[in-house]
């Protein structure tokens, strides 16, 4: 298997504040890796560096390219809030990334329509974001990321702002879509349950400054669904193990 994401000795500082310290991590192609840690531990920071939104103080974070020689972006990004442009329709929001990689308009709309259908948004092509529920907005955010057919999906707590039920439904939707072509995913969350449900591997980060504390393999067979996973005895063990790792860090983060 080829390496999709390579992070070597990454250090990120905001002024005197060290957000990430000497973090190294390798993600293989087709792997679903979840970054788990307390709030403020630098999970989002790591994604920002990978997306070229931040320059690190030391080390490097690389996304490898495979299919094409590299026109445009090879990653899709799903934000914490759906982050849709409120003045554009669902269709225009989804084609946003396609235009940047040089896809002609008609072709972009055809592709966007495909993902609109895939994410059960059919009929809402012309709707403005404020007319959609939170769950639907985040599905548009996901469609926007998938539409550019990226090598890697960077997902920053994409379901964190949703209610519990919508969250479960979207997690299953993500699993369903992911099973189609098993894109490489780097997914940030602070939900242990979500981490176990989705991940091949869970990377636990410490409280600030973020350092890799442990990497846990999630040996639960795929395809998974929320109910199967929760019923499995292995699920409870993994949850307990992860909680043991995260607990101290969460307490530390609270007391900062």
């Amino acid at each position: 298997m080829a390496t999709a994401i390579e992070i070597n000795n990454l250090t990120v500082k905001f002024g005197d504040l060290v957000a990430l310290h000497d973090v190294s991590l390798t993600v293989e192609q087709h792997e679903f890796v979840v970054l788990l840690g307390p709030s403020g531990c630098g999970k989002t920071t790591m994604l920002s560096v990978l997306a070229n939104l931040l320059t690190p103080a030391g080390g490097e974070a690389k996304l490898h390219r495979f299919a094409d020689g590299g026109k445009g972006k090879n990653f899709g990004y799903v934000f914490q809030q759906a982050a849709l442009l409120p003045w554009f329709s669902v269709m225009k929001n989804i084609t946003l990334g396609l235009a940047a990689i040089g896809t002609p308009k008609a072709e972009a709309e055809r592709i966007a329509q495909e993902y609109i259908n895939l994410l059960n948004l059919t009929g809402f092509e012309k709707a403005y974001p404020h007319q959609l529920s939170g769950g639907m907005q985040q599905r548009v955010g996901l469609a926007r990321a998938l539409a550019i057919d990226p090598e890697v999906l960077l997902m920053d707590e994409p379901f964190g702002a949703l209610d519990a039920q919508t969250r479960v439904l979207l997690q299953e939707e993500l699993l369903r879509i992911w099973e189609r072509d098993r894109k490489t995913v780097l997914f940030v969350t602070h939900s242990i349950e979500e981490a176990v449900l989705l991940a091949d591997r869970v990377v636990v980060l410490t409280a600030r400054p973020g350092v890799v504390k442990a990497i846990v393999d999630i040996d639960v067979p795929r395809p998974r669904s929320t109910r199967d996973v929760q019923a499995a005895a292995r699920f409870a063990e993994l949850e307990a193990e992860l909680w043991g790792l995260v607990r101290d860090e969460a307490v530390k983060a609270l007391n900062v």
């Binding site: 990004y77 982050a83 409120p86 946003l96 990334g97 940047a100």
Partner: peptide, 24 residues
Amino acid sequence: PLFIRVMKVYGRGQWDILTKVVFY
């Protein structure tokens, strides 16, 4: 600033940020 991040993440430059985000 979130919208500007969105534009940057999806490979859009200054001009697109001005005309598609800032203007609106």
